[in-house]
Design a protein around this nucleic acid. Structure first.
Length: 857
RNA sequence: GCUCAGGUGGCGGAAUUGGUAGACGCGCUAGAUUAAGGAUCUAGUGCCGCAAGGCGUGGGGGUUCGAGUCCCCCCUUGAGCACCA
């Protein structure tokens, strides 16, 4: 190597081009452009104190490659970034140190921004958003008020997951195996006042909407399972000797004749009436024990079934038979009607229970094929009805329909649909979140508000939202949009009260206000009551919103980040629509991704948005593991920081290697040696572009080089379209290896190579592009087009097989005919060795590919 | 337990519709260059075998002229769900 060879000084190259892009606003997304749009979205990060880890950039690099590629294809590209910055860590840090969460958040954002910028993304930084800024959360609150107006937000005191460690309530989705998803603390059931969003009203739409989404199957399946739609019937059972009915939900009305007992959940409202005096003591202690059990204990399948007979009987509506009613905690109050008809012959759980407590087990379904082994009880498959009076002989499906119709006719049942999905507990007893823009007033003052004709009245729901406080019923009134944002007040102490109230409840001057029921204005109650009959005393809602709120609609705000009149301008929404590509971790399959769909669909129904679905194409990048094959974690000490990698190898090497590791969706280990490999590749590209004595002006004249170039253009293009970036990179390596071995090649070939490389290693590509005499930015030059006509070779290689095994090969002109080729195969010396003494029974010729001679001896 | 997705060299991984398995990279071996190291380059590298050849895509069976790819059974890893009636 020449002494004076330039070194690949990635640090200064990367700095130079990052400055250039920022200065020139190379990646600004244009509103109202004539060009077609392309919107690439990353799940925006929570800016933690730990900084970026190596997993974050994986998705960002993928979306960045698509963004740069689409830009080169002539699209007007939007690739934005922002911060999901409300959340628990900053608040817990505040509790410990007294530092205001906004201070912590700002420092963390600054660090995240620096790190992300150091990787050289094609991000339009003018559109940066932050969920904790009042200008942003004004609209989060605005959407909440819309939900409130439409009766989709209500307040309820219900058993919720309370986490003593976090001193907060968690959503169903945030509890995994009886522990908090964040931190893994134990949780327990508590009855607390909660603001709840009626996501169940959207169950059907959320389910149906999945159909058209280009999402990973597993994620669609998870959402489907979470929504958990089932079809069946509600059946009313008369209770013997008392004037009550027990309503159950079942998906198997066909098995009604097999119901040999009933079960109600320990929390069932009718239970008290059902219990006979002699059973009272036993049932009471059972219910108390069940209440103490954590849900983990109750739902543990390994646990034995437990239960107590209540002393009551129900009458089976189809045959009037008396069947005993039990109470058992394997029936959940929160699903269906909280009561079931138990059919031990055809349900595993009921079977287990019936065996233990010696309840009769009746078969009502037989298999059509009479296979006794497969029809063993409990049998839950399809078949033919037996022991079911007039339904005997029907198949199960027909029987279901008939029984439902008959029950309906008799007025003791009806077809019904049920969902596992529960309403979304939306309130958090925390400081660092969006304040919920509601105030609480008396019944009288609520009535007063209802009679006005102002912005408050307009947002009032049809059915009032109420809560009990100190024996008084209070009514919720909305703050009108003109009073938003409702800012987070300053607070002395971030410590939650521990009683289920947020720190906001400890600030009387914020909490207690005079409220104008017409205009929605507020004044501190510590001051005198303002003039006018519209002013009433009110108390603010002290709960804040969960972290999911801000991320439900952030993809919209990027389209119009500074709009103070609307959450997004309609024209801008119409142009940009929803992201063409959305990438992020699979762990959000039912949280963020379900909530965001709910809000988006709601806003669509409200006429605010043109599109019903927020994310049409979704992709999950796979986890990057530590070099030891374990999940990266501080405690194991296998964490790789992007800062360190960039320092050692540069951002381009980092980008390239994250994509070269393997398929984007795969879980794959990091490798220090591996990044050296791609770094070597980039150095090789650098050397080739500086090897001026090998360059020739004008078009490529070497046929082989030209063919490989166009093959590479084709393959890289297709690989990017298919998100198979590892394959694209290996093709570029093949091309560069070839150039390196060539004595000469056209400078145009080198330029095309740089264009292919630019989305992956943009800094180096820009640098060398300029070095070869072109103007920046390479990102603005049209993507090369593969000339497919060059890909057809003049000669073809035909493989010779005997009995499917490779025995030889030869070159033929591309118009050679079948007979000649088979003849050549047969006379091939090596092939002949395998034909000797054998008879050819079949000759196969696959045009352009192979000859296979089938022989037998 | 149920559902889904995987299992290809020492390692990460390639392989249109069934048609040359192991591209590309890492690692390893030998060599060139070098005072030396690094860097770079050249050749080799699935396994067994001196070779001819045989064997090879988790295991077993099948379809086919031909199977990593299609079908059946089993083993195994990962993910999700987990008393939802």
């Amino acid at each position: 190597m020449a002494e004076d060879e330039q070194e690949y000084d990635f640090s200064s190259i990367e700095k130079k081009w990052q400055d250039y892009w920022e200065r020139e606003k190379t990646f600004r997304a244009e509103d109202g452009s004539e060009k077609p749009k392309y919107y690439a979205l990353d799940m925006f990060p929570y800016p933690s104190g730990a900084g970026l880890h190596i997993g974050h950039p994986e998705g960002y690099v993928a979306s960045d490659i698509l963004a740069r590629y689409r830009k080169a294809l002539g699209f007007n590209v939007l690739h934005p970034m922002g911060w999901d910055a409300f959340g628990l860590p900053a608040e817990q840090y505040a509790i410990k140190t007294g530092t205001h969460p906004s201070v912590t958040t700002e420092a963390n954002v600054r660090n995240f921004r620096r790190q992300i910028k150091s990787i050289g993304f094609a991000i339009d930084w003018d559109r940066e958003i932050n969920t904790t800024e009042p200008g942003y959360y004004k609209w989060t609150q605005w959407i909440f008020l819309k939900l409130f107006q439409r009766g989709l937000a209500y307040v309820d005191e219900k058993p919720v997951w309370w986490c003593p460690n976090l001193r907060a309530v968690l959503a169903n989705e945030e509890v995994v195996d009886g522990k908090s998803e964040v931190g893994g603390h134990p949780v327990e059931r508590r009855n607390l006042r909660q603001v709840v969003l009626r996501i169940t009203a959207y169950a059907e739409k959320l389910l149906a909407g999945l159909e058209d989404l280009d999402w990973p199957d597993s994620t669609k399946r998870q959402q489907k399972a979470w929504i958990g739609r089932s079809e069946g019937a509600e059946v009313r059972f008369e209770v013997d000797e008392i004037e009550e009915e027990l309503v159950v939900y079942t998906t198997r009305p066909d098995t009604l004749f097999g119901a040999t007992y009933m079960v109600v959940a320990p929390e069932h409202p009718l239970l008290e009436k059902l219990v006979s005096p002699e059973k009272a003591e036993e049932v009471k202690s059972y219910v108390e024990a069940a209440a103490k059990k954590s849900d983990l204990d109750r739902t543990d399948l390994a646990k034995d079934k437990s239960g107590v007979f209540t002393g009551s009987f129900c009458l089976n509506p189809v045959n009037g038979k008396k069947i005993p009613v039990w109470v058992a905690d394997y029936v959940l109050i929160s699903y269906g009607t909280g009561a079931i008809m138990a059919v031990p012959g055809h349900d595993e759980r009921d079977f287990e229970f019936a065996e233990k407590f010696d309840v009769p087990i009746t078969r009502v379904i037989a298999r059509q094929d009479g296979d006794e082994e497969k029809a063993k009880l409990p049998y839950s498959g399809p078949g033919i009805m037996v022991n079911s009076d007039e339904y005997d002989g029907m198949d199960t499906d027909a029987c279901k329909a008939k029984i439902i119709a008959d029950l309906e006719a008799k007025g003791c049942g009806k077809g019904a649909v049920n969902y596992k999905l529960r309403d979304w507990i939306f309130s958090r007893q925390r400081y660092w979140g969006e304040p919920i823009p509601l105030v609480w007033v008396s019944l009288e003052d609520y009535g007063k508000a209802g009679r006005k004709d102002g912005p408050v009245t307009e947002l009032m729901p049809e059915e009032s939202v109420t809560t009990m406080r100190d024996g008084e019923t209070l009514y919720a009134l909305p703050l009108p949009a003109c009073e938003l944002p409702l800012r987070l007040p300053e607070v002395e102490n971030y410590q939650p009260s521990g009683t289920g109230e947020s720190p906001l409840a400890t600030i009387p001057e914020w909490l207690e206000v005079w409220f104008d029921v017409e205009s929605g204005r507020t004044e501190a109650r510590s001051g005198p009551k303002p003039q006018g009959e519209n002013w009433v005393p009110a108390t603010r809602e002290t709960n804040t919103m969960p972290q999911w709120a801000g991320s439900c609609w952030y993809h919209l705000r990027y389209l119009d980040p500074d709009n103070s009149d609307r959450l997004v301008d309609s024209e801008k929404e119409a142009y940009w629509q929803s992201p063409d590509f959305y990438i992020g971790g699979a762990e959000h399959a039912v949280l963020h991704l379900l909530y965001a769909r709910f809000w988006h669909r709601f806003l669509h129904d409200e006429g605010v948005l043109a599109n019903p679905e927020p994310y049409r194409k979704l992709f999950h990048q796979g986890l990057i593991l530590g070099e030891d094959g374990n999940k990266m974690s501080k405690s194991v000490g296998n964490v790789v920081s992007p800062d360190v990698v960039i320092e050692a190898y540069g951002a381009d090497s980092l980008r390239l290697f994250e994509m070269f590791l393997g398929p984007l969706e795969a879980v794959k280990p990091w490798s220090e040696k591996g990044i050296e490999g791609v770094h070597r590749f980039l150095r090789k590209v650098y050397r080739e572009c500086f090897a001026k004595d090998k360059h020739r002006p004008a078009e490529e004249t070497d046929k082989e080089t030209l063919r490989l170039l166009h093959k590479s253009i084709l393959k890289v293009t297709e690989a990017i379209d298919d998100l198979r970036f590892n394959v694209a990179i290996s093709q570029m390596m093949i091309l560069v290896n070839h150039l390196q071995k060539s004595a000469f090649y056209s400078i145009e070939t080198a330029k095309s190579l740089l264009q292919l490389l630019a989305p992956f290693a943009p800094h180096l590509a820009e640098e060398l592009w300029a070095e070869l005499g072109e103007n920046p930015s390479i990102a603005d030059h049209p993507w090369p087009v593969a000339r497919k006509e060059l890909l057809v070779a003049e000669e073809m290689t035909i493989v010779f097989q005997v009995n499917g095994k490779l025995r030889g090969q030869s070159q033929f002109p591309k118009d050679a005919d079948k007979a000649d080729i088979i003849g050549a195969a047969k006379s091939d010396a090596k092939v002949q060795g395998f034909l000797e003494g054998k008879e050819i029974v079949k000759e196969i010729y696959v045009p352009g590919k192979l000859v296979n001679l089938a022989v037998k001896s």
